[in-house]
Amino acid sequence: MLRKVDKHSGVPAYLQIVNMIKSEILLGNLQKGSQLPSIRDLQVIFDVNINTVIKALEKLKNEGYIESEQGIGYFIKKDIDVEEGIIKIIRECVTKLKNSRIDYYTSMLIFEEVWKNE
């Protein structure tokens, strides 16, 4: 679900938008060929400056997730397919983290460090 960005999260607003749109693709709520709301509608949904929306859309476009048609809008270009086995591993990991009382932000820090070092 697309929602307002958290202006106090420390994560740049345009990256929050990129991540929300990627999440919607991953969850199947936005599928290949689906049209995104207009830039102005996204501005209202995310409650950000229009330039922030454009920056997020350009990043998604550069990464190959969306494409634009002049005068028409932005469309989902590809799906994000994740094997069910990967989702199962992540669920098990999250369960272990929660059982160990490790909060979300600490978990993300751990994940980021492991990612960098592998």
Rank of each mutant, 00 (worst) to 15 (best):
V48I: 08
L2W: 01
D103G: 04
R3I: 05
Q43F: 10
Q16S: 01
T95N: 13
T106L: 08
K55R: 11
L30P: 04
T52A: 00
I76D: 07
K88W: 06
N19H: 03
L42D: 09
I110D: 05
V53C: 02
R40A: 15
K78S: 14
Q35E: 14
L2M: 10
N51L: 05
H8W: 12
Q43K: 15
Q43I: 12
R3A: 08
E58L: 11
M1T: 07
Q70N: 10
E113L: 11
L60I: 01
P37G: 02
A56S: 08
I45S: 05
E83D: 14
E92H: 12
C93A: 14
L2N: 01
L36S: 03
Y105W: 11
I102H: 02
L27N: 12
L30V: 00
G85F: 07
S107E: 00
I25D: 01
I76P: 09
P12F: 05
S68K: 11
S107I: 00
D47K: 14
D47V: 07
I80C: 06
W115Y: 14
F46S: 07
S34T: 12
V44W: 12
G33L: 04
M108R: 10
I89E: 15
K78P: 12
N29M: 09
F75M: 07
E69Y: 08
E67R: 06
R101A: 08
T106R: 06
M20R: 03
K78Y: 10
Y105T: 03
P12C: 04
I80Q: 09
I102V: 12
R91E: 15
L97M: 14
V53N: 01
V82E: 11
F46C: 04
G28M: 04
K32F: 02
D6T: 00
I76M: 06
V82D: 08
K59M: 10
K98Y: 13
N29Q: 10
R101I: 04
E24L: 02
I66E: 02
G71E: 03
Q31V: 14
S23L: 07
I54W: 01
F75G: 09
K77L: 14
K7A: 08
N51R: 08
K22G: 02
C93T: 15
I21Q: 00
D47I: 06
L36C: 04
M20A: 02
I17F: 02
L27W: 06
K4N: 09
R40S: 15
G10Y: 07
K4A: 10
E84Q: 12
L97A: 12
N51G: 09
L36I: 03
K116L: 07
E69H: 09
S68V: 07
D81W: 13
G10W: 07
S68C: 04
P12Q: 06
S9I: 03
K78V: 15
S38N: 01
D6N: 14
